[in-house]
Simulated assay, not measured.
Amino acid sequence: MSSIPYGRQDINQDDIDSVIAVLQSDFLTQGPVVIQFEKSVANYCSAQYAVAVNSATSALHIACLALGVGNGDIVWTTPITFVASANCALYCGAVIDFVDIDPFTCNMSVGNLAEKLIAAEKVGKLPKVVIPVHLGGQPCDMEGIFELSQQYGFKIIEDASHAIGGKYNQEPIGNCRYSNITVFSFHPVKIITTAEGGMAMTNDTHLAKRMRLLRSHGITRDDQEMTHQSEGPWYYQQIALGYNYRMTDLHAALGLSQMSRLNEFVAKRQEFVKRYDQLLASLPVRSLLQIEGCYSGFHLYVVRLKLSEINKTQRQIFEELRRVGIGVNLHYIPVYHQPYYENLGFKRGYCFEAEQYYAEAISLPLFPSLTIHQQDIVIAALKQALLK
Rank of each mutant, 00 (worst) to 15 (best):
S2A: 14
Q9C: 08
D10G: 00
D15A: 14
S18R: 13
V19Y: 08
Q24C: 09
D26H: 14
F27I: 03
F27S: 15
P32W: 11
F37M: 13
A42D: 10
A42T: 10
N43P: 00
Y44H: 11
S46R: 14
Q48M: 09
Y49A: 09
S55W: 02
A56Y: 02
T57I: 02
T57P: 01
I62G: 01
L67V: 04
G68E: 04
I74E: 00
C92V: 11
A94G: 12
V95L: 12
V99M: 09
C106V: 15
M108H: 00
M108G: 04
V110D: 13
A120T: 10
G124T: 14
L126W: 01
L126D: 06
K128W: 03
V129R: 02
V130G: 07
I131K: 02
G137M: 12
Q138H: 15
E143N: 12
E143W: 02
F146M: 02
Q151L: 13
I157F: 01
Q170S: 14
E171G: 00
E171R: 15
P172T: 09
C176M: 01
T182I: 02
T182Y: 01
P188T: 15
V189N: 04
I191P: 02
T194N: 03
A195P: 01
E196W: 07
T205M: 13
A208C: 14
A208T: 03
K209V: 02
M211R: 05
M211V: 06
R212A: 09
S216D: 13
S216E: 07
D222K: 08
E225P: 03
H228L: 03
H228N: 06
P233G: 03
Q238I: 13
N244S: 10
L250W: 02
L254R: 05
L254M: 15
R261A: 15
F265E: 09
V266Y: 08
D277W: 00
Q278M: 12
P284C: 10
S287Q: 11
L288D: 00
L289Y: 15
I291S: 14
C294F: 07
S296F: 09
S296C: 11
G297L: 09
V302G: 00
V303T: 08
R304I: 03
L305D: 07
Q314V: 06
Q314T: 08
R315V: 10
Q316W: 00
E319S: 13
L321V: 11
G325T: 09
V328G: 07
H331V: 05
I333N: 10
L344W: 05
G345M: 12
R348D: 13
E353H: 12
Y358V: 03
E360L: 07
L364Q: 08
S369E: 13
T371H: 06
Q374M: 12
Q375F: 08
Q375K: 04
I379V: 14
L386E: 07
L386S: 08
